[in-house]
């Protein structure tokens, strides 16, 4: 259902439909916020990234940019912006680990995004994975993308993605061992 509805939304949006854009926002904003949180472990940055993605998307209605899956397109946009932020942070000589260690404090005071304590803990654990593994795990499990789609986003082979997925899950399992209960 999502695919065919998205085809029509894309088609209408390309022709300038404000209603189609509103529907795309409504449909995907929370999924993208969850994705961004899983990649960034920072609600402020997750919010900024998702807003930037939608604003850029809203301004880019010319041409044929959005081909194939709309969901995959938006997810890829989030991933690219997360990578850009990581690059900027490195260039500013800030520790990458700051993404993981500062998030808890900011999350505690930021309630413009709604998430549980378990989400915070999971997000903090994800932040300890290498970014390539973190991307694969979140995109595959939470965003339900195929390994093939993820391989295209990461510009690597499917087998490489599969390896990252396996290593990522194993490491995450170790990181969470005994720390979270499953209801």
């Amino acid at each position: 259902m999502r695919i065919i509805e998205d085809e029509l939304l894309k088609w209408r949006f390309k022709r300038g439909s404000r209603a189609a854009l509103a529907r795309i926002y409504e449909k995907y904003v929370n999924a993208l916020l969850s994705l961004a949180m899983g990649l960034l472990n920072d609600p402020h940055e997750a919010h900024d990234v998702v807003q930037d993605v939608f604003v850029s998307f809203a301004q880019g209605t010319d041409g044929f940019e959005v081909k194939g899956s709309l969901k995959a397109y938006l997810a890829r946009s989030v991933v690219n912006r997360v990578r850009d932020r990581a690059r900027r942070k490195r260039s500013q000589q800030r520790r990458i680990d700051a993404l993981a260690t500062t998030a808890g404090g900011s999350a505690a005071t930021d309630r413009t995004l709604v998430y549980s304590e378990r989400c915070e803990r999971l997000s903090a654990a994800l932040a300890q994975l290498p970014c390539e593994q973190r991307e694969v795990v979140v995109l595959k499990v939470k965003h339900e993308m195929t390994l093939r789609e993820i391989a295209r986003i990461q510009s690597v082979s499917i087998s490489t993605v599969h390896g990252r997925y396996r290593y990522g899950l194993n490491k995450l399992r170790a990181l969470l061992n005994g720390d979270m209960d499953h209801e």
């Binding site: 404000r18 509103a22 926002y25 919010h47 807003q51 998307f57 413009t112 995004l113 709604v114 998430y115």
Partner: peptide, 20 residues
């Protein structure tokens, strides 16, 4: 189940207006 983040109503509306 747990990696679930949502915009609260105010944020949702603000972002939506910004995008539109």
């Amino acid at each position: 189940d747990n990696l679930d983040v949502r915009a609260d109503e105010r944020t949702y509306d603000h972002m939506r207006n910004t995008v539109l």
